[in-house]
Simulated scan of single mutants.
Amino acid sequence: MFKHILLPTDGSEVSTRAVDQGLELAKALNASVYALHVILPFQALSYMTQVIPESESSYTEESVRWAERYLGEVREKAQRAGVPCESDYVFHKHPCDAILDVAQKRGCDLIVMGSHGWRGFTKLLLGSEAQKVLVRSPLPVMVCR
Rank of each mutant, 00 (worst) to 15 (best):
K3T: 15
L7F: 04
L7T: 02
L7G: 08
T9H: 06
D10E: 05
S12I: 05
T16E: 13
T16S: 14
T16G: 09
R17A: 02
R17P: 00
V19N: 07
Q21N: 05
Q21I: 10
L23C: 11
E24C: 06
A26T: 05
K27R: 15
N30V: 01
A31N: 10
S32C: 07
V33F: 07
A35S: 10
I39S: 11
I39R: 08
I39T: 01
I39Y: 06
P41R: 03
Q43T: 08
L45G: 03
S46W: 13
M48A: 14
M48W: 08
M48S: 14
T49E: 14
P53Y: 01
S55T: 15
Y59F: 14
T60N: 09
E61R: 13
E62D: 05
E62A: 13
A67L: 05
E68L: 10
Y70D: 05
L71P: 03
L71W: 09
G72M: 07
E73D: 14
R75N: 08
E76T: 15
A78V: 11
A81E: 05
A81T: 01
G82E: 06
Y89T: 00
K93C: 01
D97T: 08
D97G: 03
I99A: 06
D101Q: 14
V102S: 04
Q104M: 11
R106Q: 15
G107R: 08
C108V: 00
L110F: 13
V112L: 03
V112Q: 09
M113A: 04
M113F: 08
G117Y: 14
R119H: 09
F121W: 14
F121C: 00
L125T: 06
L126Y: 02
L126T: 15
G127E: 01
K132D: 10
K132C: 14
L134N: 02
S137L: 03
P138Q: 13
V141H: 10
M142W: 15
M142Q: 10
